Simulated assay, not measured.
Amino acid sequence: MGTELFEKKATLDAMVSALKDVEGIVAIVLGGSYAAGLANEKSDLDIGLYYSEKSPFDIEKVRSIASSFSIAGMPLVTDFYEWGPWVNGGSWMMTAIGKVDLLYRNIDQVQQTITDAVNGIWQHNFDQQPPFGFRSIIYLGETQVCKPLFDPQNILQGFKALITPYPVKLRQVVISDSLWLAEFTLMQCVSFASTGDTYNTVGCFTRIVNYLVHALFAINETYPLGDKRAVQIISSFKRAPLKIEEKLNRILGQAGSKADELMGSTDLLKELWQEVVALTDGEYEPRFKVSLD
């Protein structure tokens, strides 16, 4: 183990040792890129703090622990749900081993989200975080990859069992919703592009790409962890359009500003949508009989 990793592990162990004694914290996990095996030298250390809605932990005690590890003064430590309904609070701090994030997770909300997902229900909160908001099934991705560091009741192990394998109903709904919404947005996109409306056309492009990304995650029965590295991840899938990252870079990076340029990029995006639809092997059917032409 390198010196840097050794120091990070030592700090992580020390933080867990302090946090696990806070009444109300029922589980602590390593999450994010380190848990998923995607970390680099710039990656933050993400620590998930799980609590029950009926008996949440004392924020002041967590603030005191966070301040003891901070090397930049009093760190930001929020109350519950100050960051929004899904990324529902935590702390950002600079420590001796780099950036560390504490992220709160309500076990009752996580459990309900998993139950909903198994029954084919997912939610989207656009304003939670840039660029595309937060999809509820990210909770399932977090659950799958997280490394429990303190979990005396085996809560996370139980959650992991509930989401393995990928739920059939969830797969069907995500594919159907994502590809239909991409198709519907393409209709509007053609209209905007034909008049040289760059603002609305490019907005449609990014919206459509986000839908295609979620469709591909579902086709490959993989839970997303967020938008960061999503394109690189789908490029590695067994079932994905060839050279998809290259195609997306061309569509989004060279959209143009004139009507003919915007229409050219729209046509390329339409072709990519058709490639993703083909990967469903006839499973996808549009909700309404319409034409993209």
Rank of each mutant, 00 (worst) to 15 (best):
C189A: 15
F205A: 06
F217Q: 01
S194M: 14
F184G: 08
V202L: 12
T201D: 04
F217R: 01
Q188Y: 11
L181K: 08
D177V: 15
D197F: 09
A215S: 10
F205S: 02
Q172V: 11
L216R: 00
F217C: 04
V174F: 02
W180N: 12
L212W: 01
S194K: 11
K169N: 11
G196P: 03
Q172F: 12
I208V: 15
V213D: 04
L212R: 00
I208H: 01
L212Q: 01
G203L: 04
L181E: 13
A215E: 03
A182Q: 05
V202I: 14
T198N: 06
V209I: 14
G203H: 04
V213M: 10
V190F: 13
V190R: 15
A215C: 06
S176H: 05
S194E: 09
A193H: 02
Y211H: 15
L212P: 01
R171I: 06
F217M: 06
Q172Y: 08
E183T: 10
Q172H: 14
A193C: 08
F184V: 14
T201L: 03
D177A: 08
Q172A: 12
Q188L: 13
E183N: 11
T195A: 14
L186R: 04
Q172P: 01
L212D: 01
I175Y: 00
L181S: 07
L170C: 14
H214P: 01
I208M: 00
T206V: 11
T201F: 04
L186M: 13
R207W: 08
F184R: 14
Y211R: 09
Q188P: 01
F192N: 11
S191N: 10
A218R: 00
R171A: 12
V190K: 15
T195C: 06
S191E: 11
A182P: 03
A182L: 07
Y211F: 14
A182I: 12
A182F: 03
K169T: 14
G196Q: 05
Q172G: 05
V173H: 04
A215H: 02
